[in-house]
């Protein structure tokens, strides 16, 4: 979607319709209990003040290291881990965050495929039962038509309808992930959250699943919220990318801009640490580890590991502001003048 690529996340949709998904200042905090009386002594701010939106047909990737909050963000959007603050609107309608049933009208349109194809399919249900259940729950088709619909879905994901009455254990990891995708597309959703969907698969199978998702996306006009730690993969498939660090967006950019010139030093460090086939380019080291997300010190969360950090970075918290064609939460974006 070249037209919307560089529009700010909070900007109006170029086509005038409401965004598919709009999050403003979204927060998902988990209480940390301690002491004799198990009182709340702090919070893990897994998602902390995140704003972004998504439009129809878009592939938005959320990247970052373990514990950055990318999976929690995906779950929060779907109400699987309800957000504790901020605003969320799906298809232009605001969600009452305190009420778990608020997501019910949207379940059909917002689906998810999980990371682990071994634990996300009920081992005691046949493939038919796994795929038929959401069709029944949402009344997608008459009971008599369900077998045809299941056979059609299996065909769509490249599996033989003959497999319908087998159990998940009879399938390889890649085939199970196809079943997970068939379950998600069965309801004709508008958006699928893909949570590390190929992380557990071999390279050649990974490419097959990605190709399948891309084909389905163009065919069905799907949007994909693609959660991944693999930036090489993200580069291959994304329109737009959010880089997260400790619960916040460090950088948001079109895939083209992000990989051509990263603005946030964390994005740059992530990219430089990835090994490639180029023997002349050695991965560079980013020192230290991600700090504990409980009771973070003031200032930029990345300052402790950042080669460019100055005093200001340890005192003030940078906001996500325009940086060239991207947005970056950094006072000293790379290749640009400092934020006044």
């Amino acid at each position: 979607m070249p037209g919307s690529r560089n529009a700010g996340a909070t900007g109006p949709d170029p086509r005038g319709s409401a965004p598919l998904l709009d999050a403003q200042g979204l927060k998902t905090w988990f209480p940390v209990l301690g002491g004799v009386f198990r009182k709340t002594i702090g919070h893990v701010k897994a998602v902390n003040d995140v704003s972004f939106s998504m439009h129809a047909g878009e592939v938005l990737s959320v990247v970052g290291e373990s514990g950055c909050g990318k999976s929690t963000l995906g779950y929060s959007i779907l109400g699987l881990t309800p957000p504790t603050g901020g605003k969320l609107a799906l298809m232009g309608r605001p969600i009452a965050l305190g009420s778990p049933s608020a997501w019910n009208p949207f379940r059909k349109d917002f689906q998810i495929v999980f990371q682990d194809p071994y634990t996300s399919l009920n081992p005691r249900h046949t493939v038919f039962e796994i795929l038929a259940e959401p069709l029944r729950t949402h009344g997608i088709c008459a009971t008599g038509e369900i077998p045809d619909r299941v056979a059609y879905l299996l065909g769509k994901v490249g599996l033989s309808p003959d497999y319908m009455h087998r159990f998940p254990h009879a399938f390889s990891g890649g085939q199970r992930q196809r079943i997970g995708i068939a379950r998600a597309i069965g309801l004709n959703p508008k958006l699928i959250v893909c949570d590390e969907v190929v992380a557990a698969l071999d390279v050649s199978v990974q490419a097959q699943i990605i190709q399948l998702l891309m084909d389905l996306k163009s065919e069905m006009g799907l949007s994909l919220l693609f959660i991944s730690h693999d930036l090489s993969l993200v580069k291959a498939i994304s329109d737009r990318v959010l880089v997260m660090y400790l619960g916040k967006i460090a950088e948001e950019a079109s895939a083209r801009d992000l990989f051509a010139h990263a603005r946030h030093p964390y994005t740059a460090a992530l990219l430089e640490s990835i090994p490639t086939l180029d023997r002349g380019r050695r991965p560079k080291l980013l020192g230290g580890e991600i700090p504990s997300p409980v009771n973070l010190p003031p200032g930029c969360a990345f300052a402790g590991r950042c080669a460019h950090a100055r005093d200001r970075c340890r005192q003030e918290t940078p906001e996500l502001l325009a940086a060239g064609l991207s947005r970056a939460a950094c006072f000293y974006p790379m290749g640009l003048p400092p934020v006044p």
């Binding site: 199978v205 990974q206 490419a207 990605i210 190709q211 580069k235 291959a236 990989f259 990219l271």
Partner: peptide
């Protein structure tokens, strides 16, 4: 089939 950071965008070719 390998996703490549050192190549342009576009999906990988599966086996």
């Amino acid at each position: 089939a390998l996703p490549r950071l050192d190549a342009g965008a576009g999906p990988m070719k599966p086996i």
